Amino acid sequence: MQSTIFAPWEDPEAKPLIRFQNVTKRFGTFTAIDDLSLDIYEKEFFALLGPSGCGKTTMMRMLGGFENPTEGRIELAGKDISGVPPNKRAVNMMFQSYALFPHLSVWDNIAFGLRRDGRPKDEVAARVAEMLKLTRLEKFGRRKPHQISGGQRQRVALARSLAKAPKLLLLDEPMGALDKKLRQDTQFELMDIQEKTGTTFVIVTHDQEEAMTVASRVAVMDEGKLIQVATPDRIYESPENVYVADFIGDVNIIEGRATLEGEETYRIDWAEGEAPLRATSSTRLDNGQSCFLAIRPEKVTISPERPEGAVNAVHGKVLDIAYLGNISTYHVELASGTVIKAQAANTRRISRRSFTWEDPVWLSWTVTGGVLLAG
């Protein structure tokens, strides 16, 4: 049976739709993008993720034609697009503010670009009807933007952006204005629409959860450089460095020194008076090399007694508890002063917690539970 997994980046024959080749962008003496190379494939939902000022919006603006690279080249479908004005590119951009025309109806907002291109009336009507259906706005065609909700306005902006069937749609923090619940619903809608249209989406966001939910691949950026480009599960489970481990989700990071003990097992000496920890790594570390062990709180088990046969077990007392409904996060302080977070699912409705403040507890995790990273 043929696999249906979508992973063109693993196919050496696949030609990228977008190609950044050694792109540098300077504004005066400031380097916003620093010698960056990246391939994005057709039908991808690609996320540029990073803190403010990391260069993700500059990359998007270069794709949209609002900025040109200082050095290097950007290709779209094999053609160099540097110097091609925004309206001549098969690219559309959906802005954070949605930029809808307040005096035009939803229908006319969606039709605007098609009419400007001089498309025949019946073709415009058919395409607008298709876009209204795609974004579930059929009932709202005659309303003005101020007569619909924020989530609906966002869908109008999306319908307008997709009406001209661009090869590439750029989305700049598209969910920044929505509340958390609506944001989550909209993320799934966006994925659904992207899949139905087959348009390549590139989204800029600083929200890790959003990037991890919607994207086929995520590029984690910092200071104009790509730190890691991978699928969301690889970014989360196999970060390549401390920056990525720390930037995505919640994590415990323990600093120590590594010594090889088996084929791929390392002993980590990390705190005075604490037993060494054990972790596996396929990347070679030198004996005595400084290292970081990154462990997700959900991989750490909390228990009142030391678990039998546990490879990694540390003792401490509960310092803080964050109750999040479905899970509780326990902050446990060890004798060395290190605080480690452990997460437990709240499977039952609890009348009282299993652990409370100041309780002595053991934390444990498996030898493969953490990711060992070079220091």
Rank of each mutant, 00 (worst) to 15 (best):
G309C: 05
S281C: 11
A342M: 10
L319G: 02
Q228I: 07
T283P: 00
V251M: 06
K317W: 15
D269T: 13
D233T: 13
K299N: 14
A344K: 12
K225C: 07
S328A: 07
T231P: 00
A230I: 09
L226H: 01
I248S: 04
A245R: 10
A279P: 00
K317S: 15
I227S: 05
V214W: 04
N241T: 13
D320F: 15
V220P: 00
V314W: 05
A335F: 09
F355E: 00
Y266S: 00
D320N: 15
I321F: 02
L324S: 11
A294T: 00
A345R: 08
L334A: 11
Q343N: 00
S303D: 08
I327R: 09
D222Q: 13
E263P: 01
D246K: 15
I268E: 00
V244D: 03
I327H: 10
A313W: 14
A294P: 00
S282H: 03
K299R: 15
K317R: 15
K341I: 06
G337C: 02
G224Q: 13
A345C: 01
A219L: 03
E261D: 03
S351H: 14
D246H: 14
R306V: 06
G325N: 11
L260H: 08
S351W: 12
A310H: 13
P307V: 14
T329R: 13
A313V: 15
F355N: 02
T231G: 03
A279Y: 02
K299E: 14
S354V: 11
L334G: 08
T231A: 11
A313D: 12
R352I: 09
A215Q: 06
Y330P: 03
T301E: 09
N287I: 03
S351I: 15
G337M: 05
E274Q: 09
G337K: 05
L319E: 12
T213M: 08
H331P: 01
R296P: 01
E237G: 06
T347Q: 15
G224S: 12
F247L: 05
K225Y: 08
R284H: 08
L285I: 12
V332C: 04
E264N: 10
H331D: 08
M221D: 01
I302Y: 12
P304V: 10
L334Q: 09
I248N: 04
